[in-house]
Design a protein around this nucleic acid. Structure first.
Length: 314
DNA sequence: AACGTTATCAACCGCATGTAT
DNA sequence: AATACATGCGGTTGATAACGT
C-alpha cells in the first residue's frame, strides 16, 4: 500500500509540464530568480508558479536564461580552446565550459558533437588536428605529443590530491605551458544592457546561489582532489574559489579573472547589498574547488607559470 | 512546391554524488 | 547505517530549421 504523500507526489509529477519552455514560463522564472534568488529548485518551480520540475527549471536557467550567457556563434579562439581542452579532458563538458565564459556545458557539447567533431574528422589528413578527433583516449595525444610528459603523467598529477600544484611544479613545466587556458573575454556581459542592469540589482546571495558569478569565468585549471578517481573524474576549480579562504585574506578576486562585472577590488569582509563578498564571488558554490584553501594554491606563482598553450593563438 | 536528408540545439533521462534526517 | 531528497553531469532524443534534389 502506497503512502498518501507518495500518491500526491505522483499526481503532482504527472501534471508537470515537459518540452519547450514558453515565453511566459521564461518570464516567470527570470522574474523569480532576479527577485528572490534560489533556495531549492523544486521550491523555485513551485513558488514561481511553474508547472515544471525543479530539475527542468535549473536546466532552463543555467543553459538559457542566465544573464551572463553569451549567445551566438563560437569564435575561432573559443573553438581552439574547446578542441584543446577536449584533448585533455575528454567529454568533461562542465569542466570545459568552466573555461569558456558565458558558455554552457550543453552548448559546448552540442557544438562539439554537431560541428567540431565532424570538422576534425574532415581535416583528418591534417596531423595537427587528427588527434583531437572523437574519443578522448585518442585525443589526449595532442598534449602528450607536445609536452614532456605523457597522458598518464597528466592524469596522475591531476589525481594527486595532496598537491596538485606542487605536482605540476615538480614536473618542471615549461614557462609557457598552461594545461588549462582560460579564454579571456572582456566583453561578454554588456553592463549597459537592461538585462545586466537588472542583474546588478539582484541580491548578492542570489548570485551565489544561482551560480552566476563563479564557474563560468575563470577556472585557472587545477584539479579538485575530492572528486578524483570517481566516475565524473576531476574538476577545475574556479579561480575565485581558490583565491579566498573565507574572511582571512583580502584579494582582488575580480581583477584576477577578467570578470564580467567590474566591481574592482574589495576586501572579503565587505558587503554588497547585505551579502558577504564570499557569497558574491561564489565561494562554496557549484562544486568546483569549494574546498580548496589558500595554502593549497599559490595563485601568483601559478599565474606566472602559465600563459598560453603553444598551439593556441591567443 | 513537395519531399527527403542533414544539422542544430533545447530538453529529457538516468546515474552518481552530496547532504540531511 | 539507511533512506530520501537535491543537485550536477554526460548521453541521448526529438523538434525543427536549413538545405538539397
Amino acid at each position: 500500500m502506497r503512502k498518501p504523500d507518495l500518491m500526491a507526489n505522483k499526481d503532482i509529477k504527472s501534471k508537470l509540464r515537459k518540452g519547450l519552455w514558453s515565453p511566459d514560463e521564461d518570464e516567470k522564472l527570470i522574474r523569480y530568480m532576479l527577485t528572490n534568488g534560489q533556495g531549492c529548485w523544486s521550491d523555485i518551480a513551485r513558488n514561481a508558479g511553474l508547472q515544471r520540475c525543479g530539475k527542468s527549471c535549473r536546466l532552463r536557467w543555467i543553459n538559457y536564461l542566465r544573464p551572463d550567457l553569451k549567445r551566438g556563434a563560437f569564435s575561432p579562439q573559443e573553438e581552439d580552446l574547446i578542441i584543446h581542452l577536449h584533448s585533455i579532458l575528454g567529454n568533461r563538458w562542465s569542466q570545459i565550459a568552466a573555461r569558456l565564459p558565458g558558455r554552457t556545458d550543453n552548448e559546448i557539447k552540442n557544438f562539439w558533437n554537431s560541428t567540431l567533431k565532424k570538422r576534425l574528422k574532415t581535416n583528418a589528413s591534417t596531423p595537427s588536428l587528427n588527434n583531437s578527433i572523437d574519443s578522448s583516449s585518442e585525443s589526449k595525444d595532442v598534449l602528450c605529443g607536445i609536452m614532456p610528459f605523457n597522458e598518464h603523467d597528466i592524469m596522475t598529477m591531476c589525481m594527486d590530491s595532496s598537491s596538485s600544484l606542487s605536482s605540476m611544479h615538480a614536473m618542471a613545466l615549461p614557462d609557457q605551458f598552461d594545461p588549462f587556458p582560460m579564454l579571456v573575454n572582456n566583453n561578454q556581459c554588456d553592463m549597459t544592457s537592461d538585462a545586466s542592469a537588472d542583474f546588478l540589482n539582484m541580491p548578492a546571495s542570489c548570485m551565489t546561489q544561482i551560480g552566476i558569478v563563479e564557474g563560468q569565468q575563470g577556472n585557472y585549471g587545477m584539479l579538485e582532489p575530492n572528486k578524483m578517481g570517481l566516475g565524473r573524474g576531476f574538476s577545475l576549480p574556479s579561480l575565485e574559489s581558490r583565491s579566498i579562504e573565507s574572511n582571512s585574506v583580502p584579494i582582488d578576486v575580480i581583477s584576477h579573472n577578467n570578470h564580467h562585472f567590474n566591481y574592482g577590488s574589495f576586501n572579503s569582509t565587505d558587503k554588497i547589498q547585505g551579502s558577504k563578498v564570499e557569497d558574491l564571488i561564489g565561494i562554496g558554490n557549484h562544486g568546483q574547488g569549494e574546498n580548496l584553501k589558500m595554502g593549497e594554491w599559490d595563485l601568483e606563482n601559478l599565474m606566472h607559470d602559465v600563459t598560453s598553450f603553444p598551439f593556441l593563438d591567443f
